[in-house]
Structures are given as C-alpha cells and as structure tokens.
C-alpha cells in the first residue's frame, strides 16, 4: 500500500519539486512556491466546483432561514425541505467534501515530499534516497538549498513571522468562505472554525520545517485569489444584514413557489386540502399573498397542487 502511494503520488511530486529547484538555480524555496501553484492550478476544476457549491450555499441562506422559521423544531420536515431546496439549486450536501477528499492525498504527498526533500537528519536523507529517480539532475541537487529569504526551510522559523503569516492567510481564506448566519449556534461554530483552523496551522508551522509553512502560505494565497474571482470577498467584507422573517418569506414566495420545496410542503397538507375540497384562488404555501395563476398548460399535477394550496388558503381565511 505504501509502495503504491509512493509510486503514484509521493515520488513524482518529490522529483518534480527537485527538478523545479534545479530550474530555479537550486532554490528550494522557489520550487515549493512553484509546485504549490502548479498543484493548485491542476486542481482548479475541483476547487471551482467546490467554490460554486459554497456560493450556492450562500445564496440559499435566506431561504434556509425562512424554512427554519417556518418549521421550528420539526426536524423531519425541515430536513426534507432543506434537501429539496438543495436539489433545486444543484447543491449536494457532500459537494464540498468530495473535492476536499480528492485533494487531500495530493496535499499530503506534497507535504511529505517537502519535508523529506529537505532531509534535516540522516534518517530523512536515507529515506529520501529511496524516493529519487535515477535522473542526474535529481541526484546532483541533493541536498537541496535550504536557505530561502530569512528562513532555513529545514527548521522552524526562529522569528515566528511565518506562523503569523500562515495564521493570517488561513484566517482570511476561512473568513471568505464562512457563510453568513443569524443562528447564534452556527455563528459560534463559524467563529470557532475561523479561529481554530488558522491557529492549528500556525501551531504546526511553529513546530515543523518552515518549508511547509511556505507551502501553507502560498496555498492559502492562491486559494484566496481563486475565491476572490469566483465569489468576491465573501464573508471578509461586512455583508448585508440578514433578511427579516417577512423578507425571507417574500423571497421564498417569489423564488421558491414553484420549487420542489413547495411541492413537498403542499403534499404535506394534502389530506387537509382534500377534506376542504375547494378554492379558486391560488396562494403561496405561506397563505398571505396572492400570486398569478399558473398557465393551464403546466400540467395536471401542477393544477391539482395549486388547487390544494388555494383551498388551504381559503380555509385559513
């Protein structure tokens, strides 16, 4: 298993990094920056999908909030409606996890290759020798030049500048990704995530060779740039206040009325509607706003559903 890992991921990334170091005149620091950018760009399609999913999640927040208000503690209905909403907007609840899962092995291999290529101890150097291709350019560049800017890439940054940079860049990235919410529990959770992840990586950078810190910083900066062009500054700039309940409800009526959420919700009241069996006025599920009747050619089910809604509204009156 380890052999497969080495052959498919670790060895190619490690050797490519060393070749890049040779290209940059032996600077392993520049090679780390280059390989990080190359890997992030190679995985852009996956990142793009992930960001799109995140963006869509942002957009449906008001609707989700409205659904929460509506269903309160009814977990079953809330889950079903949420799933329907996700489906309608093409969001998979696992959508942001799969890209991370795919990228994780590459991150780990990159992490390992940077650490092992620096070979701070004889054990590391011995391990490194087993990963190298027999290319002259690779062998002649070992050991790699470990000095880069103020850093010795093989040891932690003695001035703590790099851990601070890692913390800041990761915080910015986390903040840009964070989804606005009015839910205090969610807010607290977001806040924790925004602080925990940067703190965790800053702590790792304190302990590990600074070459890894360079990788963390560059990776975060590339992530911030990608995110900016896809989603703007996100949660980094002060967002518009969350819509009030009435506003959210209005949004739902305007944009979700024809959705499967509505369909699901109307189905929930089917029995009640059928008991009343009347109604010539179409209303939303929320029962307080008239909307235009849908065209006749929308299908029998649609018509039947609207009938149910109308009758329900009449009953409420």
């Amino acid at each position: 298993m380890i052999e497969i890992w080495n052959v498919i991921l670790l060895n190619p990334i490690m050797n490519l990094t060393i070749v890049l170091a040779n290209f940059f005149g032996g600077s392993f620091g520049l090679a780390i920056i280059a390989i990080t950018i190359i890997v992030r760009l190679a995985m852009f399609p996956i990142t793009k999908k992930q960001l799109k999913s995140t963006k869509a999640m942002h957009e449906i927040q008001p609707k989700l909030k409205a659904l929460q208000k509506k269903f309160g503690g009814d977990r079953q209905k809330m889950s079903a409606a949420t799933m329907a909403l996700y489906k309608e907007h093409g969001i998979s609840p696992l959508g942001c996890v799969w890209p991370m899962l795919i990228q994780l092995p590459i991150w780990i291999a990159l992490f390992q290759s940077i650490r092992q290529a620096l070979a701070a101890t004889p054990h590391d150097l011995m391990a490194l020798s087993s990963h190298l291709y027999s290319w002259g350019v690779v062998n002649q560049n070992i050991p790699l030049e470990s000095n880069f800017l103020w850093l010795n890439l093989a040891t932690p940054d003695p001035y703590f500048i790099l851990p601070i940079l890692v913390g800041i860049t990761m915080w910015v990235q986390q903040k840009m990704t964070a989804q606005p919410t009015d839910d205090p529990a969610q807010k607290k959770s977001n806040m924790m995530m925004q602080l925990m992840f940067p703190a965790m990586f800053a702590f790792i950078t304190l302990q590990f060779p600074s070459g890894l810190g360079v990788y963390f910083v560059v990776s975060a900066i590339v992530g911030i740039i990608m995110q900016y062009f896809m989603m703007g500054w996100g949660g980094l700039v002060k967002s518009k206040p969350m819509p009030t309940y009435k506003q959210s409800r209005k949004q739902i009526e305007e944009s979700v009325i024809d959705s499967k959420v509505e369909e699901y919700l109307s189905d929930e009241d089917e029995d009640e509607d059928e008991e009343n069996g009347e109604g010539d006025e179409k209303s939303s599920y929320w029962g307080d706003k008239k909307v235009e009747q849908p065209p006749q050619n929308q299908g029998k089910r649609k018509g039947r559903k609207d009938g149910r809604i109308r009758s329900r509204r009449k009953n409420r009156r």
Binding site: L94, V97, L104, I108, F111, Q116
Partner: peptide
C-alpha cells in the same frame, strides 16, 4: 468525512514526524 479529513491530516503530520532532534 470532515472528521476523517482532519484526523487524516493530523495522522499524517504525526507519522511524518516533526523537525525535532532524532
């Protein structure tokens, strides 16, 4: 899955060791 991701990251860090003295 998120838990696994985080645990995997930490396991990797632990397995690959830190830069301290051997």
């Amino acid at each position: 899955l998120i838990t696994i991701l985080v645990l995997t990251l930490f396991a990797t860090l632990a397995l690959t060791g830190c830069s301290g003295a051997p």
